[in-house]
Design a protein around this nucleic acid. Structure first.
Length: 499
RNA sequence: GCCCCCAUCGUCUAGUGGCCCAGGACGCGGCCCUCUCAAGGCCAAAACAGGGGUUCGAGUCCCCUUGGGGGCACCA
């Protein structure tokens, strides 16, 4: 809010795997800042590494971001004036800028083999030196370079990092970061296959696309000084850099490993956005949750819809320290947002889960059920356990559960019969018609309402935990309710005679 | 090993020298409500990593230690 200048920001993932919570948050923050300032949000695909390229990754990414509710103004799927938006399609652009750096004497050709490089590092390792390129190809004559390139010798282009002095770059959250140049490598800018590496490609694109704020993960902090060198070598104006904290595993000890990520889904959680969707988390809940991991709002508000976040987001309130993922808080936020949904909306969202569970659901009935389950579920998926019985023809109660608390099977059967007679006499069963007479019945029989209602609950819903009894009966309908009570009486009688 | 970053309740965090014997949220415990389960309401327990400075005064500034994280690739 304090920054009302329209920003140009970008989310620039590499399509190498599944879309993670951390990516979701980075994308979200970029989006929020763009929308808040009336700026531009660009999606750029950083696919310069063909070895790690996963074809489905970009689709999953786009799906997940859209699911979260984000939209972008420029990108590979929507186009825009700064395209192409896939780096693999911008190869010639990078080559051109690499050559410019060479002519500026800020980059050079390097012919060292990967074997020689590995050997070099081994030596540096034992001598406890920084693992940086030793500069062998730094001072090759123009003639020699030309000869070897012509001869078709494999080569890369390296940045000529100054050997003396230091560089100071500025991160919005951390302030100035100064590093001595001797610890910085002569990073490779262009690989031997002619494709640029991130360091060059991202800086060139950010410049060409007019990016004003680079909001990215803190894994880039260590190469940040190099990026500063590249930008300054070209004489470009520097965008504002914001490095977001990393997510730690729930224990707070370390980052989530692949194996641990896979393990998570066993208990209904995941760090992958598409998994969360399938698990029954809703985008409002997930967005609220990740927004608050590393960002806060001063008045202690924690409940935010996407538009609230757009209005209230602020770079200044970002927190640079790593944050442990807290799934119980996700459950809380998800439940919170489910409860604020309109009943019809909830019904619609829950429907695919019933479909997937093999239920045949009637739309009208589902709309009636929605408000009943709304305060009782934390994920959409929970609806099946809570309300599946509404959509079954028959219900199979556990016979033992049909017996009322501190009662015998015979007593329970008797109570069920008396209840049956009352309910059968009603024109229609609902809270208004049924509750009062059944309470009186319980009272007359010397039972707690809980004892009687418990028997009926298990009989009618087939489960000991359910939405409120009479509301449930109203949805199920008189005929089915009576049938189920009759079945329960039979089961109780059978238990009684069995001893 | 080398470089960089971070450090308040179990977790997410508020806190930018006095308003803090540290506030909120999740979770946990208790109570209320209640036909079950939830939801909701109320109450409680729970933290400034350690050591040095600076200052009249430090969670807040500086240094060291410790701990945690990231990076050290022809990955991003």
């Amino acid at each position: 809010m304090e920054n009302n200048q329209p920003v140009r920001v970008r989310f620039a993932p590499s399509p190498t795997g599944r879309t993670h919570l951390g990516s979701g948050r980075t994308a979200l923050y970029n989006y929020l800042l763009a929308r808040q300032t009336g700026g531009t949000f660009i999606l750029r695909i950083e696919d310069t590494d063909q070895k790690r390229y996963v074809p489905e990754a970009e689709q999953e990414l786009v799906h997940s971001l859209r699911w979260l509710g984000l939209s972008w103004d420029e990108g590979p799927d929507v186009g825009g004036p700064n395209g192409p938006y896939r780096q693999s399609e911008r190869k010639d652009i990078y080559r051109q800028y690499a050559e410019q750096l060479i002519s500026l004497d800020r980059a050079y050709y390097c012919f060292c083999s990967t074997e020689r490089l590995a050997e070099m590092r081994k030596g540096q390792q034992v001598r406890k030196e920084p693992l940086v390129y030793d500069g062998t190809c730094r001072h090759l004559s123009v003639a020699e370079v030309q000869r070897r390139v012509m001869a078709g010798e494999p080569h890369v282009v390296r940045f000529k990092t100054p050997r003396q002095g230091s560089i100071t770059v500025r991160d919005l959250l951390r302030g100035e970061i100064t590093v001595e140049n001797r610890y910085l490598d002569d990073f490779i800018l262009v690989k031997s296959d002619g494709l640029a590496l991130y360091h060059l490609a991202a800086m060139v694109d950010d410049h060409l696309m007019g990016i004003t704020h680079v909001i990215r993960g803190s894994e880039w902090l260590s190469t940040f000084p190099l990026h500063g060198h590249i930008i300054r070598a070209f004489g470009w104006t520097e965008p504002i850099f914001v490095h977001l904290s990393v997510f730690l595993k729930p224990s707070g000890k370390g980052k989530m490993s692949k194996r641990e990520s896979a393990q998570l889904i066993q208990d209904g959680h995941s760090v992958f956005l598409t998994d969360l969707e399938q698990l029954g988390y809703i985008p409002e809940g997930v967005a609220n949750w990740i927004a608050l991991m590393g960002w806060s709002y001063d008045d202690h508000t924690e409940y935010f819809c996407l538009q609230d976040l757009v209005d209230k987001f602020s770079l200044q309130k970002l927190n640079p320290s790593p944050a442990a993922i807290n799934f119980t808080k996700l459950d809380y936020f998800n439940g919170l947002h489910i409860r604020t949904l309109a009943a019809e909306d909830l019904a619609e969202r829950v429907r695919p889960f019933f479909d997937a569970g093999g239920y045949v659901v009637d739309s009208d009935k589902l709309r009636q059920v929605a408000p009943l389950i709304q305060p009782r579920i934390t994920t959409l998926d929970d609806a099946l356990d809570m309300a599946g019985f509404f959509f079954k023809d028959e219900v199979q109660p556990n016979p033992a559960e049909l017996i009322g608390k501190k009662m015998t099977a015979a007593q329970s059967a008797h109570a069920a019969r008396r209840s049956y007679d009352i309910l059968a006499s009603l024109a229609e069963i609902n809270v208004e018609t049924a509750e009062q007479p059944l309470r009186e019945l319980a009272d007359g029989m010397g039972l707690n309402p809980g004892q009687l209602f418990g028997i009926l609950r298990v009989a009618v819903t087939g489960q000991s935990v359910s939405p409120p009894l009479f509301e449930s009966m109203a949805v199920i309908g008189k005929a089915k309710v009576l049938q189920r009570i009759q079945d329960a009486i039979a089961a109780l009688d059978a238990m009684d005679s069995a001893g």
